[in-house]
């Protein structure tokens, strides 16, 4: 066991969820505009995979609490380490806020959330127009905040990997050698 890389489970969760969330963001932005026949299919997949994302982030918190992440190298200033921690917290918040607001918004609209045609989640809010209005806008705002956060996050990761070359990117890629 080395503490140099993120645990395999953490890495798998990180990269698969990164792919899932980026797809969800693009698909969400495209589908709300489209009058094409694929709109319905996208909407159903969006809701189903959104529920998968909610379950995945719950599992990810468990993984995160179970396996301590590797420390940042001591070359990273303390303040920057704090900012990094804080930004990861925000990413987690967004990973919860997106699917939760999606589910709640559908509840407030009285629209069913059917997961892969298998089962429906219960409606947990009363049908209410203003409540839907809030949750629908919230889903949109958080999406854009999330996008901004992800861009900064990727920029920072690449900065570590390509400019500083301090092993932080490798910790998540799983390619950091032992000292």
């Amino acid at each position: 066991m080395s503490t140099h890389n993120y645990h395999l489970a953490a890495r798998i969760m990180h990269w698969s969820m990164a792919l899932l969330i980026l797809s969800m963001l693009f698909a969400g932005l495209a589908m709300v505009q489209s009058l094409e026949p694929w709109h319905l299919t996208f909407l159903q997949l969006h809701k189903s995979f959104g529920v998968v994302a909610l379950l995945a982030v719950i599992a990810r918190v468990v993984v995160r609490l179970r396996f301590t992440p590797p420390p940042l190298p001591s070359s990273v200033p303390v303040l920057q380490q704090k900012i990094a921690k804080f930004s990861h917290m925000l990413l987690y918040l967004a990973m919860f806020a997106m699917p939760l607001s999606g589910y709640l918004m559908q509840s407030a609209a009285g629209r069913p959330v059917v997961v892969f045609d298998l089962f429906a989640l219960p409606q947990i809010l009363p049908q209410n127009l203003a409540l839907y209005g809030f949750l629908r806008e919230f889903h949109g705002w958080v999406a854009w905040a999330f996008i901004a956060l992800i861009l900064v996050h990727i920029g920072a990761a690449l900065h570590h990997g390509l400019i500083k070359r301090d092993g932080v990117l490798q910790q998540m890629l799983g390619s950091k050698p032992k000292d």
Partner: peptide, 23 residues
């Protein structure tokens, strides 16, 4: 194609009036 187009248009109208209702 008309049927398939209705969902997204209704959702946009619904979104606008819900937001206005909220405000």
């Amino acid at each position: 194609k008309i049927l398939r187009a209705r969902s997204a248009a209704y959702a946009e109208s619904y979104r606008r009036r819900a937001r206005e209702n909220l405000m």
